[in-house]
Design a protein around this nucleic acid. Structure first.
Lengths: 201, 201
DNA sequence: GTATTAACTGGCCGGCCGGTCAATAATCGC
DNA sequence: GCGATTATTGACCGGCCGGCCAGTTAATAC
């Protein structure tokens, strides 16, 4: 058999606890989740969670840190495989980000919780990512492919925030009159956003 | 004196409890706030809160409902005093909404909590507001003042979501390299948004 | 092999949680 | 005025909270 019944694997255990934490915390928020729930969900005792992480708070921090790092490396990989900057590729990047959030709703919720907590650590890793994205926009501006009278960082921020809020506030606007599907909204947003960024004559 | 020491005013008491609830819940979230904190902050006993609202959950619902109604009436008033639709007035509306959120950060946090709870009630009142806004955009489209190949509801949603997320995720993006002030961002967003909405030639 | 360390368990703790209840005091209908 | 109603209090409840601790078992170092 692959797993002996009484074999210990502390790495695996830590991972199981973090995965349980990720699921419960992201779904219900830090303070709604109890150590008993975490223990039950991870299949370990409360004491073992304390042994590995010290406290509920430190487990939450470990969960967030792991999630941010995974997010960061995924996004960095997406950014690196993007080619030379131009308007079409900007559109493709927006769509890629939108699809990423669509496929990973837990990322959106994680951000929302950390924003409400006022936690700045989510933005620190992101700074590199945004720096690279803004540089990418700046090059396109210099080549005359995008209008150059807007701050490149604001260009990145605009589409990142729109995509994030679209999924974060789904329950808010999903029944608004005339509201379309994910795809329909993305299409309209891209129309406005990309044409708004064309060089001024 | 304006207030007798031992005079009862149940309306005023309900209000004090709701205001304490609004402040604490919006700041820390429903499950982090305890009845004892609420009671202390409102200057009443826990039992009195139960007497007036029945339970912690129902107090939270009352707080949200009151806040949504105030939000709705404020926004409706803003919408009604807006004049005939055109691109400049759309810009003014975006700015008005942005300034409203800037001046009322508790509204932003309230929306964020309700979104995480999956509460749809915030969107129901809004539906009217958005319906009116979308109609306003539609008229501008018919007059050839705005491009007509985008869904009017998506136009409203785009700027509402951008403004909301700007303030909601402030702690996330405030230290991004090159990120400007509230005003600088708003200016750039308006450039992109309004030019992206001009009629296609 | 054996001593040391680390993983892991179960039971327990003080404290606070949301909520209840009986008693009291102010207000209101008449 | 006076009885019914309702606002308000403080004492109290069972239960669960996060965390601790003593003890046991597995892995590791030598």
């Amino acid at each position: 058999m692959t797993n002996q019944t009484t074999t210990r694997d502390p790495e695996q255990t830590r991972l199981r606890i973090m995965e349980a934490g990720a699921e419960l915390f992201v779904e219900h928020g830090f303070s709604s989740v109890t150590m008993s729930q975490l223990a039950k969900s991870a299949g370990v005792t409360k004491s073992l969670i304390h042994h590995h992480f010290g406290s509920k708070e430190r487990l939450w921090e470990a969960v967030k840190e792991r999630a941010f790092e995974r997010y960061f490396s995924t996004q960095m990989a997406m950014l690196e495989e993007a080619g030379e900057p131009d308007a079409a590729l900007l559109g493709a990047s927006v769509e890629a980000y939108f699809r990423f959030l669509q496929a990973n709703p837990e990322v959106v919720r994680l951000f929302a919780w950390t924003h409400l907590e006022g936690d700045t650590s989510c933005g620190e890793l992101d700074a590199q990512l945004v720096g690279a994205g803004a540089e990418w926009v700046r090059q396109a501006q210099q080549r005359g492919l995008l209008r150059d009278d807007v701050n490149p960082t604001h260009v990145i921020a605009t589409f990142v925030m729109t995509c994030t809020q679209w999924f974060e506030a789904k329950c808010h606007h999903q029944h608004w009159p005339g509201m379309g599907s994910d795809d329909a909204f993305l299409e309209d947003f891209l129309r406005i956003f990309l044409e708004g960024l064309l060089p001024r004559r």
